[in-house]
Amino acid sequence: MKALTGLCAGILFGIGLAASGMTDTAKVIGFLDITGHWDPDLIWVMGSAVLVTLVGYRIVFKRSKPVFAESFSIPSKITIDTRLILGAGLFGLGWGLYGYCPGPAIAALVYQSPTTLLFVLTMLFGMWLSGWVSGQFK
């Protein structure tokens, strides 16, 4: 059931990304260009998604445990540290340069653009590199 849930949630998320315009790099850049020719459409994506999780999570967390698992796995970290800020900053830089965050980039692989594949492969390398670098400073 976990596998089926993963697949269904992924498909739902993928439809959402393609429908919303998040897989269109020009649309994303237009959304981020608030001091230029701002295209505010994508604010509705984040807005409606967050509204659904704000309400939905509240209902779900009334349960003592999930339907097909023993417990809820919620990120336990609460400290706001340099890693969080620096990581979010570097991510924002990459997102603003090209127009893709991880989810849309993976969904967009179906558009069969070699450039998107390049983005996804270097993204995976970047994730690996991040873990390696963090390991060096432990």
């Binding site: 849930t5 959402g16 919303s20 998040m22 967050v50 659904v52 809820f72």
Partner: peptide, 22 residues
């Protein structure tokens, strides 16, 4: 479309938490 897309994205997240707690 952005509103429909956002609702689907949020629903996917709620579904994942409700069913498998992730």
């Amino acid at each position: 479309w952005p509103i429909i897309g956002g609702i689907l994205i949020g629903s996917s997240a709620v579904l994942l938490m409700w069913l498998i707690g992730r």
